[in-house]
Structures are given as structure tokens and as C-alpha cells.
Design a binder for these strands. Sequence first.
DNA 1: CAGGATCCGCCCGGATACTG
DNA 2: CAGTATCCGGGCGGATCCTG
Lengths: 126, 126
Amino acid sequence: MVTKQFSGSADEADLRRADSLAREIFSDVANKWALLIIEALGERTLRFSELRTAVEGISHKMLTQNLRMLERNGLVGRTVHPTVPPRVDYALTEPGRGLLVTVDAMCEWTHRRLADIDEARRRFGG
Amino acid sequence: MVTKQFSGSADEADLRRADSLAREIFSDVANKWALLIIEALGERTLRFSELRTAVEGISHKMLTQNLRMLERNGLVGRTVHPTVPPRVDYALTEPGRGLLVTVDAMCEWTHRRLADIDEARRRFGG
DNA sequence: CAGGATCCGCCCGGATACTG
DNA sequence: CAGTATCCGGGCGGATCCTG
């Protein structure tokens, strides 16, 4: 379970708040685009336009939307250079780096299991 | 990147196939309900109805849909007991257990960063 | 170049009813 | 109890246009 990992002397109301917060964060973060953005920023700081090509298939709208969300949660930092034309850099924060570790693990798992899954699908019939 | 981690003497076409497969798997797996189901099955084998209550908020339809998907990818095994009323058990396969490790890490990360994110949100303004 | 705003089609996902 | 089928509304997400 995502929730109910805290116990002890805390107030019940506090626990419920923590629970709903945890679920909210999980819902935010456990989505394809967010994780792909995190992964892309894992290598290095990227500009908006760079992210757009780094995360293949993402639309303008989804990119901004997810970037705002990640920024709101303090996982991605945003640096605006007051130049013309404007330049905006996105980079993982330290909490963001923590998440990156698990995303990396997930990507690695995907590749390690590629063959198994391919075969499983064939057996399943598709 | 999710893709392009293989290199060497393989055929270009093979690489592209592996890439698109990896993206497909990632899209399948990197969604809220799938991860919550994996997490729930991490503790023990569960019946359909048990999963329904274990994964809070999931609808009948989403549960079956995601279970089929996970089964198709060979991450979750399905055991039908020919009794009446019918009983169906769902359990992680060995590849599924591998994914569980990373999901667990993600949940742990969520809880570890709860306070930081809470504060980040407040600073962001909301 | 970054990104807000708007329109809108399509599909996700919930509710319900029905079968084995 | 487990699962499929159908209907349908809300929202996701793409395309486009516009600002600084």
C-alpha cells in the first residue's frame, strides 16, 4: 500500500492528511509523461525545446502541464534567463534526483525483461 | 531515455523493434493503477474482490482492464479454481516481483519526501 | 523561444445490467 | 464471485493562434 506506513503517537487527522497527500503525489508522479521527463532530465539540464525532442511524442501542452506539476512538487527547478530570445532551463532538484533513481531502476527493469515480456505476450495470444 | 540502451552488432530493424517494445511496456506499466495493483500483490496473493478493496478507489472496470494487461505482459499470474462460486487468485510472477522492487522504492521515496513536497507546494502557492 | 489560451474530438473510466 | 458488455459524460490531450 502507498498509505499507512506511519504509526505511532501522531494524531489520526494528521495520518489521514499524510495519506491523502501521499496518494496525491503518487497519482501525480506515476504517469508516463512525468516519468519520461524525469528520466530525460537525469542526464543533464535541458531547455524547453530540448525536452520537447528528448521526450519523444510529447505535445507542447503535456510538456508544460507536467513541468508545472513537477515544479509545484519541488522535483524540477526552473531557471529563466532574461535574454532575448528567452531561455529557460529545467533541472532536477535534489528530491527529484531521488525519484530519478527509482525511474532509472524501472527503465533498467524494462530492458532486462524485454525478451520475457515479448514471449509472454506471444503466449497470451496477440 | 527509455530507449537506445542497446548497442553493438545488432540489426537496425531489431533495435527499432526493441525500442518500440520498450516504450510500449513503459506506457503500460507507468500508470497509477497498474503500479498500485503490483504494490498490493506484493504482500500476498489476492482474489479479485480482495484487490478491489486493497486498491482503494479503483473501479471494477479499471481493475479487470489492468489485470488483463499485467497478465498479458506476464507480470501477474492468474489461477482459476473450478469451484462454485468461482475463485480466482492473482499473484506476481517472477518478472513481476522484479518490478515490485522498484515500485516499493517509489512508495518509500514518496513517504520520505512527503514533508519536502508539502512545503514545496506551499511555497509554489496553492 | 517559452508558454498561455482556446477550441474540440476522442477516449478514459464510471455506472449499470447481464452471464457463468 | 468473477467477468463481459454497453452506454455515456467529463476531461485528457492535440492543434492552433497569440503574446512577451
